[in-house]
Nucleic acid binder design. Structure first.
Lengths: 263, 263
DNA sequence: AGAAGGACCAGTGGTCCGTA
DNA sequence: AGAAGGACCAGTGGTCCGTA
């Protein structure tokens, strides 16, 4: 349902090649390809990712110069189809900006729908790694491990890497656990013109608040959610939950432990 | 119920000190001490483990020489209470021998009830590590990890170590999954005078047979059992299950896939 | 300045092989 | 010979910090 919308608005920049390689690599054990892939394959738009024409010049600090064709990021150009034949320099992904739900990131930027989509892609890669592992009788991971990131690279999804994915896990957690709250936060931070770092920081608090309502067990909260359960709980989120729980406990103890009474 | 029996017959050699240290280390987070400990503490017998008087002589190859008091293993001496003050040399545990259920290992040997009890002890150590971790808001292991082995050492259970525990996991698995079969195998191998290595090898087959009956998913079988789920599936057991499944599949395919039909 | 990610590091799972 | 376990090693989770 939202897939089509998201696809139209901001996901068209995703490469198709990795997906096709995934399907080969997954072999007979490969499970169903997710809705996203079906949508993308049907869409027929072409873009490349993580590849660009060799360009020897040093980074001149020009910004938002759109008349180049070597656009990397997810969301804008309809077609720069040529592809990259040899001598490609490794390029970084465009940085994220705070976007509203459904909003296309303009310029050399990627939006947050795209960020969250990367988490879904990792889940698909994990499923494929699991299927391959099961087929071969090997032990197979229940979480997104190094092995999964290696697999993502191997099948061409070089735009996925561990530091990035770990960095934003708690943001994705909010998106999974309370999409309304997540959307509201995105709109508020976009409105205020905050950068991604500020938005990312702000995502901790509502997740901690959710944990508070559910007995502070952030691991249980992650594990209970089908899409979230495959991600390790970030250290900082765990620490914040623990710290909040401790001070909440201290607070309630001065009321004589009667923290469930209404005064 | 069987605890008392086992204790009387072969578990009295377990040190009490580690248990007491465990309880301290577990702190306020420490859960209930298991039945074993209660039994042991009530029993009042004393023995030391992993400690002995300094003895400089090289290992003369004397065997089964019982008139020494530096007995280490689990099962025989009622009391060699003196303890070891300083200059203790690190001693190995006595080797295991194949014993029947409830049988005391004689001489400088340990029996299989004692072996299986070590797995239960590890479970208790894991529970304590988990409680400590939860209390501190750290991530806490669901399996017996290096951290648990380190904890066991720290609280004095130096007779527990990773290579040993990993070595016999599939034997413990059989004991958990089909105690009758496990007991029968022990009796048979004892009768034949087989050594521990032969018994250990023989434990693979019945576990694989159990897996065969349950769709070959050895991970699921481990995870479904409360005492077994905390142990990693041994690589060799996993490989055996996979190999058997493959040949079973090959077999059934020549019958046209009608492997559920009765001919 | 804000951000992406290569690459490092402490501690893991796994088990070999020098030891007794 | 049979067996216990110290210690090693490849690959992990975690994230810093040199990079653009």
């Amino acid at each position: 349902t939202t897939n089509t919308l998201l696809d139209a608005l901001s996901q068209e920049g995703l490469s198709e090649e990795p997906v096709q390689q995934e399907k080969e690599a997954a072999g007979s054990g490969g499970g169903g390809v997710g809705t996203w892939e079906a949508v993308k394959l049907a869409g027929g738009k072409k873009q490349q990712r993580g590849k660009k024409k060799a360009r020897a010049r040093m980074a001149s600090l020009e910004d938002d110069d759109d008349d180049e064709t070597d656009q990397l990021g997810g969301a804008e150009d309809d077609d720069n189809g040529g592809g990259c034949d040899g001598g490609c320099e490794r390029q970084r992904e465009h940085p994220f900006i705070v976007t509203e739900p459904g909003e296309v990131a303009r310029g050399k930027k990627n939006g947050l729908d795209y960020l969250f989509h990367l988490y879904e892609q990792c889940r698909e890669f994990l499923v494929q790694v699991q299927n391959i592992g099961k087929e071969k009788g090997e032990k197979c991971p229940t979480k997104v491990t190094n092995q999964v990131f290696r697999y993502a690279k191997k099948v061409g999804a070089s735009y996925i890497n561990k530091p990035k994915m770990r960095h934003y896990v708690h943001c994705y957690a909010l998106h999974c656990l309370d999409e309304e709250a997540s959307n509201a936060l995105r709109r508020a931070f976009k409105e205020r013109g905050e950068n991604v770092g500020a938005w990312r920081q702000a995502c901790y608090k509502p997740v901690v608040a959710i944990a508070a309502r559910q007995g502070w067990d952030i691991d249980a909260i992650f594990n209970a959610h089908p899409r979230l359960s495959i991600w390790y709980v970030p250290t900082k989120l765990r620490q914040l939950c623990h710290a909040e729980r401790s001070s909440a406990a201290a607070c309630s103890s001065v009321t004589g432990g009667a923290d469930h009474l209404p005064f």
